[in-house]
Design a protein around this nucleic acid. Structure first.
Lengths: 194, 194
DNA sequence: ACGGCTCTAAAACGAACGCTCTAACCAGTA
DNA sequence: TACTGGTTAGAGCGTTCGTTTTAGAGCCGT
């Protein structure tokens, strides 16, 4: 990480801090310190201030998780098993971080709901891209378009909620239980497998 | 509300503000102003300061939502229909508040994850009591104990995630889709109805 | 050697934060 | 009238917030 550019270090540090303490709870000076940069650098690369840093960080986190999601889903042929693999991946990350590093979008999204900042749009885009990733997998598995979209919304939402529950309970059981039930739900559609 | 005691007004105002802007985003002076009380009153009733106010507010919100949940579930005999009624209730509240008043626990829980404050425990208790409410309904409907518990975890988590998704998208569609899928999932257990 | 550029460094601004403090108000009792 | 305990009122503490500002490195083509 020592060879990463200052700008990249800022984005990555901001992403991690946002994930842990949310938007309001993260100070711009803290971001600078964590990124081993100075306040001047932060405002040089992000003249828009704290909000601009947060938007860049959320976009970064969004793509990062989209990749994790895609890999987990593609690691199994059955989409239900793929969702369970994804839940295991999430649980692993949570446990490794001491249950602090949760969904990079949820916290920031909730805190800026009233405002009309660009952060909102970044969160909407993140959720949409994740849903699309799941939808694609379901379509490839033979689901009908309408079922696939509705299931994808349900799956992303349920995983998000289960992750929060897992965090506050410091247990991966909610993620396990939820992914098991999601797999059962997908099985109930009885899609023909090639 | 004019006849409510000062202490009650503080708790209610804090609950609403926590719901909208989270723990860090809500100032204790703002709580006092919103409750039409003064800072002196707040610290008189809550010597523990901001954290004590938040704990009381979360407990209050927890019981409030538990009642809503119980009523919605009991309004239908079929538990799947009950969950859908609950989702409609949530959607109604969201729309009425301009998509700002979400889950009273999620935001506060996420922001205080690293800390070991009492807020964490209050959030854990809230989630547990809601899960228990759902579990009771499922048991009464003939589900096996193990299935009921796992389903309850899934349902509460999924509703939570769907509510967040609904908030950021300013649409009640995620709640509708999720509750429909949850009802389907419950139906898949094919419990005998009396 | 030079101005011109990107980037870094640190001091300082006003505002807001959580919290403490003292003084006053207002029953009820004697 | 005086006293008392529960409650309200608001000034002010030290700290941190996001941001601005000014100054100075380091590098490059000429």
């Amino acid at each position: 990480m020592g060879q990463a550019s200052t700008r990249d270090r800022i984005v990555i540090a901001a992403a991690r801090l946002l994930q842990r303490q949310g938007y309001v709870g993260t100070g711009i000076k803290q971001i600078a310190k964590e990124a081993e940069a100075t306040l001047g650098s932060v405002y040089h690369f992000f003249p828009g201030g704290k909000e601009a840093v947060a938007v860049a960080a959320i976009k970064y986190s969004s793509q990062e998780f989209a990749a994790v999601l895609r890999d987990a889903l593609d690691s199994e042929e059955d989409p239900g098993a793929g969702v369970q693999a994804c839940a295991r991946q999430l649980a692993e990350g949570l446990r490794a971080s001491g249950w602090t590093d949760g969904c990079p979008v949820t916290a920031a999204a909730l805190e800026t709901l009233g405002t009309d900042s660009e952060i909102q749009q970044a969160c909407v885009n993140a959720l949409r891209s994740w849903e699309q990733t799941v939808t694609d997998k379901l379509l490839r598995s033979g689901f009908q378009a309408r079922d696939a979209r509705e299931l994808a919304t349900t799956i992303i939402g349920a995983l998000e909620g289960a992750e929060v529950t897992a965090q506050v309970n410091r247990s991966e059981e909610p993620l396990r239980a939820t992914s098991r039930q999601l797999a059962r739900l997908m099985d109930s559609y009885g899609v023909s497998r090639s």
